[in-house]
Amino acid sequence: MAQTTRPLSPHLQIYKWQSQMVTSILHRATGIALAVGSLVILWGLVALSMGPDAWASFHAIAASPLGLALLFAWTWALWFHFINGIRHLYQDAGAGYAISTFIKASWFSIIGSLVLTLATWAYVFMGGAA
């Protein structure tokens, strides 16, 4: 870190945890996770283009316990980044900056992403296709 005589803002551990802060951190974390996950989408597409054998090995790994666990985590990352991203677009337009609105919206991102994730996987398992 650069040496400076300027006053610096306190480090992260000084602050009390708040929902707005958690959503901000999670937005980055899920973004990084989704960037990695996009390589899996790519893998699936390339396997599909290569033929039934390549697709079968992709499908076997994706449907394995570890594969399903990762897909579940990525589903949540996707829905969180999705909802929170829309919230950011709304805020980029200059709206929703009243403190109470801001806190409510960040809780909406957290709870909404969990609801959508559970709904998605409820559909997957009710379809009996996993």
Partner: peptide, 29 residues
């Protein structure tokens, strides 16, 4: 921001597509 707006629509399409393809065989997918 522009790619984010495009992805709002494209992600919804992608999720619906993938959920619709669950349980289908190679040829169908």
């Amino acid at each position: 921001r522009l790619t984010a707006i495009a992805l709002v629509v494209l992600v919804l399409w992608f999720v619906v597509l993938v959920l619709g393809l669950l349980g289908h065989d190679y040829q169908a997918v």
